[in-house]
Design a protein around this nucleic acid. Structure first.
Lengths: 189, 189
DNA sequence: AGGAGAAGCTATGGACATTAGCTTACTGGC
DNA sequence: GCCAGTAAGCTAATGTCCATAGCTTCTCCT
């Protein structure tokens, strides 16, 4: 049999392509194998099982998203940075709704993703620290920011916003809401 | 065979019990059948298939949540009402994390749930109208409120908040954030 | 060239959803 | 009180999917 040169990363590539095209519900080993040009059991040479593949997919997505956010934060601070990462977050979801949907399909918290999540959290914390936030205030602010952004993203990716009003405008309001709701220990310097 | 007196509602009851105890990932027809004291194929006398059962479960949950919210809004208005429904929302999730997790497992938007969603939306809109909001502003505000609350709920139900800081406090900040971020076409009367 | 290890494969088994077709318990009309 | 007809239950069987076992064959390194 002519080897096809698969690798864990290649398997994840195929999985991501499926998620992009058909959503996380269609992510099955046979589908991945089909796309990779290989019989299903061959995948086990590269990936422990389906659960592990899902984890790798989520990690890949998380890292990709983190990359976008940290690019968006580069050279900016305060409201400028906040707005920029919030817009980057949503634009990732708009560009890849399937991927984003795949990311929150996990039932349990997964220690394997902690490193990746922490990096993303790091970007967010850095931006919020620019407002002079620290300690518990910083954590609470980060949670709220994350909730707002994630909530909007999930709903949009799932087609949960039925009405015809412009989503951009709604998101701008969300950005305003977060900005105006941050604790303000240090007014502008 | 002694009839067990099952009904669509009874099947949903069993399904909800499973979701409560083990999460939406364990919701399988054999599990439901086992709990209902019936063989798996018998379920098809009451429910078209697994997808339909999931839909019914989601509808039940949505209705339950709507009930809580509308109770919470009763006799209140403006900040008082807003705070009350936001707290009611979260308390539902804290009481039934499995149920809430089950509710956002749908890949596609489901027309069958539109009536139920609309009722929930109705409660939210009523509260926001109390601020004098209407038209597109009302829609944008409702989306932001929903995003914030849903985002927090999903993350909390999934165990996504790892740090030890108090979640109550974080949620209070989220409430403040939403209040302070609402468009303000009509200041207090 | 030759051998080791990795990358494939087929065959098999077990869980689950679903369909088909049968049996048996209730229910309403006589 | 009896007797259909219907609805609720069952067993059997099929197809899909994840997973494991064990064999074969590339490929690469020496």
């Amino acid at each position: 049999m002519p080897r096809v040169g698969l690798s864990p990363a290649g398997v994840v590539d195929a999985a991501i392509a499926i998620v992009d095209e058909s959503g996380p519900g269609e992510l099955t080993l046979s589908a991945v194998a089909g796309r990779a040009g290989v019989a299903t059991p061959s995948l086990y040479k590269h990936v422990r099982n389906l659960a592990e593949l899902r984890r790798l997919v989520r990690r890949r997505i998380l890292e990709e998203l983190t990359g976008r956010l940290s690019d968006a934060a580069l050279g900016r601070s305060r409201d400028d940075a906040l707005r920029s990462i919030m817009r980057a977050y949503r634009s990732y979801v708009v560009d890849h709704p399937g991927r984003y949907a795949a990311m929150d399909q996990s039932a349990e918290p997964e220690p394997e993703l902690d490193a990746a999540s922490e990096k993303l959290l790091g970007v967010v914390l850095a931006v919020l620290r620019g407002y002079g936030l620290e300690g518990p205030d910083l954590v609470h602010a980060a949670r709220c920011l994350r909730s707002a952004v994630h909530g909007f993203a999930v709903l949009e990716a799932a087609g949960g916003f039925g009405l015809p009003e412009d989503l951009e405008t709604s998101y701008e309001l969300l950005i305003t809401m977060v900005k105006s709701g941050l604790p303000h220990p240090t007014p502008a310097p």
